[in-house]
Nucleic acid binder design. Structure first.
Lengths: 109, 109
DNA sequence: TTGACGTATAAGACGTGGCTTATATGGTGG
DNA sequence: CCACCATATAAGCCACGTCTTATACGTCAA
């Protein structure tokens, strides 16, 4: 989960995911959308691979990348806990909330 | 939007938001949940303030912090574009997708 | 008024992230 | 076979992020 949030913190990596949401692409294809260098792109792709957000496979001397949207469930699940605030009036800001959102008292990083 | 994604990339900051989702808290109250120093917490809170994810107000010599969940809409909106993949079979990975997700061809970081 | 409290800010240390150029490695086609 | 292509990896640089200790500043209570 941490790896996922870190992966999507970068705007270029979010853009890569957006592109792959339209369909598989090769590295050189993806490179056409950015101005940074090819190795920079490879590094971004590695972060996304390691976070489980993309899948890659060799196709000849190219490499195809595909989105693994399952990896984004943890993000959606986390942010879903905040949706209730958007449907209620914001004067509930100080209100004591549903126990579903209860967390452990001690958070150890 | 970038500031928001960067703010939530850190697990401690996500934990702060989770705590504030239950209700307003003072800085010293929040500090009780973490092992890092008070100035570290102040820095995290500043990141969250600057990203518009929390609101603060002085209450005597204390400072109350409250969640501003509106700031998380951009995250939810972004990840919502990926929900369609979870309801479909993953054999659609290579499929050409809805034009709603279309982006500009050139992405300038 | 003064000392204590609560918290923001300053400054420093150091690890990390994101970029670069260079190079290694595997695949292709003439 | 060899030159070219595509991309991953290596190594370096430097800005930034996150921590720390020290201190400044505003508020409170005796």
């Amino acid at each position: 989960m941490d790896a996922t949030f870190r992966a999507i913190s970068d705007p270029s990596r979010r853009a890569i995911l957006d592109l792959l949401a339209e369909g598989e692409r090769s590295v050189s294809d993806l490179l056409g959308f950015f101005t940074f260098s090819q190795p920079a792109l490879s590094q971004h792709l590695k972060v996304l691979r390691d976070a489980g957000l993309v899948l890659s496979k060799p196709v000849g001397r190219q490499r195809q990348y595909a989105l693994n949207a399952e990896g984004l469930r943890s993000v959606a699940d986390w942010v879903r806990a905040y949706e209730r605030f958007w449907t209620e009036k914001l004067d509930g800001l100080g209100a004591v909330l549903d126990r579903e959102a209860a967390k452990e008292r001690e958070i150890k990083p």
